[in-house]
Simulated scan of single mutants.
Amino acid sequence: MHSPEMRARVRALRAQGNNIRSVARTLALPYTTVWHWCVDRPDPVQANSAARCFRCRPDQVGPSDPTAYAYLLGLYLGDGHLVTTDRVPVLRIYCTDTWLNLIESCDAAMRAVLANRVQRIQKQGCVAVQSTGKHWPCLIPQHGPGKKHQRPIILAGWQQEIVTAQPGHFVRGLFHSDGCRVSNRVTVRGREYVYPRYMFVNESADIMGLCQWALDLLGIGWRMNRRNSLSVARREAVAALDRHVGPKS
């Protein structure tokens, strides 16, 4: 039987952004035990979503964790969906089920921004990381009917301020959802060369523009190789983006 102090240590490490696997390893606990404490059986003494919504609290001018918000916003713009037709809104981010660290990072970001409880729903080839909360629409005003590329996607002024201060975390969310880091192969005069390259693909011109803007804020060079595809390929640009994004896993 584990003590309340051990449970508190687990939740403290999770609140710092550590994923479940690393918490279990650090405290020499079974993975399933940590998972149940953090995911399946959250601490009942938690603030409700109204108290945590920084848009509805006059005493709070921004998110308590702006890095988590910027990252979550990037994930939403790539592979996210906010359902507002149900009784309680549901924020859902789709993650390929082989990228366990991405699933953990998405889970942690939702909790850091608003969620008291996060569910993981197994789909064919992916996991839907989701959270219900009445105040998700306050924090994700880009939601709306239809596909994102069929409607305007414009950041509110307060969102622009967060992304301007945290462009690396925003870009990380975008590339973790609709981007990838690949090894590009070219043959020059019969000799093959291999070099790393980042790609970001999105049908929304507005979302593509936000990605370009954030990369410009970071001083990272990019180019459009197709209408819906952005490439970061120069050695110094890839090295800079590695510091913010890195390969998905």
Rank of each mutant, 00 (worst) to 15 (best):
E192N: 09
W158T: 07
P66A: 00
E236K: 14
I121M: 14
Y193E: 15
V129D: 11
A68Y: 07
M110G: 08
Q60S: 07
H135W: 09
G209T: 14
D107F: 06
A24N: 00
A128F: 06
L230T: 03
N48P: 06
L102T: 15
S22Y: 03
Y69D: 07
T26D: 02
F175S: 09
P141R: 10
V23G: 00
A205K: 12
E236C: 13
Q150G: 11
G179I: 04
W99T: 14
D178N: 12
G221W: 03
S229A: 14
V194H: 13
G190W: 03
H81N: 04
M1A: 14
W136S: 11
R7M: 04
L114V: 13
E192R: 12
Y198N: 02
D97V: 11
F170Q: 06
P63M: 01
Y195D: 06
D79N: 14
R9I: 01
C138A: 10
Y193H: 15
P167I: 09
S64Y: 00
M208I: 14
T164D: 11
A109F: 10
G173Q: 12
W158E: 03
Q166N: 13
P196H: 03
P4Y: 03
C106K: 14
G209Y: 09
K148E: 09
Y69P: 03
A156N: 04
R151E: 02
L27C: 02
F175E: 07
N202L: 05
W213V: 07
L218D: 11
C138N: 08
V90A: 10
T26R: 01
V61R: 12
H176N: 15
Q122H: 15
A233S: 15
D178M: 06
A156H: 07
A156M: 08
E192F: 04
C95F: 03
T26P: 01
T26C: 00
I220D: 12
C126D: 10
P247S: 15
H169A: 15
T33D: 00
Q150A: 05
V39K: 04
V61D: 11
G133C: 04
P167M: 08
R151Y: 02
F54W: 11
F200W: 08
L215F: 02
V163K: 07
L174N: 10
I20D: 01
I154F: 01
Q160K: 07
L139W: 02
I220Y: 07
R223V: 05
L114H: 11
R197E: 14
S204D: 00
C126M: 10
M199P: 12
E203C: 09
I154A: 04
M224P: 01
D107G: 08
Y69L: 04
N18R: 14
Q119E: 14
A205G: 11
G221F: 02
T187W: 01
S231Q: 13
V61W: 01
A237T: 06
G144L: 02
W222N: 11
V182P: 06
Q150P: 00
I154Y: 01
R226W: 02
T33L: 01
A51D: 05
G209S: 11
C138D: 11
G157H: 14
V201G: 13
V232R: 04
L139Q: 12
T33A: 00
A28D: 04
E5L: 02
P30D: 08
S131H: 10
G78Q: 01
T67L: 02
A165G: 09
S229T: 15
W37D: 00
E104I: 03
R41I: 01
Q166H: 15
H36F: 05
T187G: 05
V194D: 12
Q142R: 13
